[in-house]
C-alpha cells in the first residue's frame, strides 16, 4: 500500500452537467501533491470528494484503502478523524478563542485532561509560531495568522492526510511564504500526506512533489514541478507563465464584434 489516496474513473456532477469526468489520480504516502487549474474547474470539488463531503456518482475514491463512496455516516466520521482540512479562509470558529479553536478536536474526540490539552494546544500553536495569540478571537487576527491558526487546528490530532483548499489565496508575500514553508514542514516532519488545491503556481512549484493539472473537469497534464515547468503543452505553458492569452482565450466566447456593436454593415 504505497498510495494513500486512489481515485479511479471518477465522474461527478451537480445535477445534469458533469463537473469532473473520468478522473484518475493517486497520492503516494508521505508525498505533497498539488492539484492546479483555473478557478471553477472542479478542483475544490475533487478535494471535497476526498474528504467524503461529496459522493461521486461513478468511479471510486479510496483513502487508506477504504472506499469512501459507500460509507455510511458513522464510518465517514470515523474516517474523517484521520483527515485534516485547511479551508480557503481558515474557517475558524468565530465564537471561540484561538486557543479553543485549536483545542476543539481534542475536546470533542478525546478524554484527555485539560492540562494535557493545554500543553498540546500550545505546542501546536508554537509550531505555527502563534503561541502569543492564544487568547485572541479570530476576528482580531490578520488573514495570514488566521490561516496559520487554522493549520494548527487542522493538524491538532495528527492526521494521516491533510487537504488544503487554496491555502495561498489573498495573502501577502511574507504570509504566503510562511504558509508554504509550514505545509512542507508538516508534511515531512509529521509524515503527513498532503493534497494541495491551488492556482498559485509559483509558490506551490517550490514546495510540492507532484502536480496534476485539471481543466474542464479532466486531468490535462501531470508531472513533477520540473516536468511541468518544461512542459510544452500550450495550456500548461500559458498557466505556468501566466500569459493573458493562449489556448485559454482572453475573450469569453461571444458573438462577433460586429453583431454586438451593431456595425454589421460597415465592418469588412
Amino acid at each position: 500500500m504505497t498510495n494513500l489516496v486512489e481515485i479511479s474513473d471518477l465522474n461527478f456532477g451537480y445535477g445534469e452537467s458533469l463537473v469532473l469526468k473520468g478522473i484518475n489520480l493517486t497520492v503516494p504516502r508521505g508525498s505533497l501533491v498539488a492539484i492546479m487549474g483555473l478557478s471553477g474547474c472542479g478542483k475544490t470539488t475533487l478535494l471535497r470528494l476526498m474528504g467524503g463531503q461529496l459522493q461521486a456518482q461513478q468511479g471510486s475514491v479510496r483513502v487508506a484503502g477504504q472506499e469512501l463512496n459507500h460509507m455510511d455516516e458513522r464510518q465517514l466520521y470515523a474516517m474523517r478523524r484521520r483527515i485534516g482540512m485547511l479551508f480557503q479562509f481558515g474557517a475558524l470558529f468565530t465564537d471561540l478563542t484561538v486557543f479553543d479553536n485549536v483545542a476543539f478536536q481534542m475536546r470533542e474526540h478525546t478524554d484527555l485532561p485539560e492540562s494535557m490539552i493545554r500543553d498540546l494546544t500550545l505546542m501546536k500553536l508554537n509550531a505555527v509560531g502563534l503561541r502569543g495569540v492564544q487568547s485572541l478571537m479570530p476576528s482580531e487576527l490578520s488573514g495570514g495568522m488566521a490561516r496559520r491558526v487554522a493549520l494548527a487546528r487542522a493538524t491538532a490530532l495528527d492526521p494521516q492526510l491533510m487537504l488544503y483548499d487554496e491555502p495561498f489565496t489573498g495573502l501577502d508575500p511574507i504570509s504566503l511564504g510562511a504558509i508554504g514553508r509550514l505545509v512542507r514542514q508538516f508534511n515531512d516532519a509529521l509524515g503527513i500526506t498532503s493534497v494541495l488545491v491551488t492556482h498559485d503556481v509559483q509558490e506551490s512549484m517550490k514546495i510540492v512533489d507532484y502536480i496534476y493539472f485539471v481543466a474542464d473537469g479532466v486531468i490535462v497534464a501531470q508531472g513533477s514541478p520540473a516536468e511541468i515547468r518544461a512542459s510544452t503543452l500550450p495550456f500548461v505553458h500559458q498557466f505556468v507563465w501566466g500569459e493573458a492569452d493562449g489556448p485559454m482565450p482572453f475573450h469569453y466566447p461571444s458573438q462577433t464584434m460586429g453583431a454586438d456593436f451593431g456595425l454589421a454593415g460597415e465592418v469588412r
Binding site: 474528504g51 463531503q53 455516516e73 466520521y77 470515523a78 474523517r80 478523524r81 483527515i83 485534516g84 482540512m85 479551508f87 480557503q88 479562509f89 474557517a91 475558524l92 470558529f93 468565530t94 476543539f104 478536536q105 470533542e108 474526540h109 487554522a150 487546528r153 487542522a154 487537504l163
Partner: peptide
C-alpha cells in the same frame, strides 16, 4: 447561516464533528 457561509460548518464536519449535533 454565517457559520455555513464562512465554511465553519464544513470545517466542523471535516473535523469529524457533526454540526447537527454540535
Amino acid at each position: 447561516g454565517l457559520m455555513k457561509a464562512t465554511e465553519q460548518l464544513s470545517a466542523m464536519e471535516m473535523m469529524a464533528v457533526n454540526p447537527m449535533a454540535r
